Amino acid sequence: MKMVKRYPDLTMPFEIVHGDADTIVPLTVHSEPLSKQVPGANLTVLEGIGHMPHHVAPEESVAAIDRVAARAGLR
């Protein structure tokens, strides 16, 4: 929990991809709070997708990687 206090200090680009049908780790447990705590974080919520969005929706996962790489000046 000590790290949570420092989330607002993070300056690197953040992309968070989460399925709204995830019953293992619901969206409200980590992704939504994290997206509000990290300045400039981008949360992509995938409708009807469960716990493993990178397996079910690889295109969206790759798009998030491309976005964060571009925001970091790597593309």
Rank of each mutant, 00 (worst) to 15 (best):
V29N: 12
S61A: 11
R75T: 12
P13G: 11
L10W: 12
T28V: 10
S61F: 10
I24S: 00
G73P: 05
R75H: 00
E32H: 11
T23V: 10
Y7S: 12
D22T: 06
M3F: 15
V68N: 10
R75V: 09
A64E: 02
P26Y: 00
P39Y: 02
E59V: 06
D20R: 14
G50L: 06
L43A: 01
K2N: 15
R67Q: 05
R6A: 11
F14V: 15
N42C: 14
L46F: 10
V56M: 08
K5Q: 14
V29T: 02
E60R: 15
L34S: 11
G40T: 03
V62D: 11
S31V: 09
K2L: 06
E60M: 01
V62L: 13
V4F: 12
L43T: 01
E47S: 12
G73V: 04
L34V: 01
H51N: 06
P26V: 03
E15N: 07
E59I: 11
R75E: 11
S35Q: 07
G40E: 05
Q37N: 00
M12I: 04
M12T: 11
Q37S: 15
H30T: 03
V45E: 01
E32Y: 03
P53Q: 09
A57N: 03
V4W: 02
V45I: 10
D22P: 03
V68A: 12
Q37V: 08
L74G: 03
P33G: 10
E32S: 09
R75F: 03
S61H: 15
A69E: 13
D9F: 01
V62K: 13
E32C: 02
V56N: 00
E15L: 05
G48K: 12
A72E: 00
L46K: 05
L27N: 04
V38Y: 04
V38A: 03
F14A: 15
H55Y: 14
P26M: 06
D20G: 13
E15F: 07
H30M: 09
I49K: 07
K5T: 08
N42P: 07
M3E: 15
I16G: 05
Q37I: 05
H54D: 07
Q37Y: 05
D22V: 04
E32A: 13
V68H: 00
A70D: 08
L43S: 06
I24D: 01
V45R: 11
A21F: 13
M3D: 14
M1I: 13
A70R: 10
K36H: 00
E15C: 04
Y7A: 14
V25W: 04
P8E: 08
N42D: 15
V68Y: 00
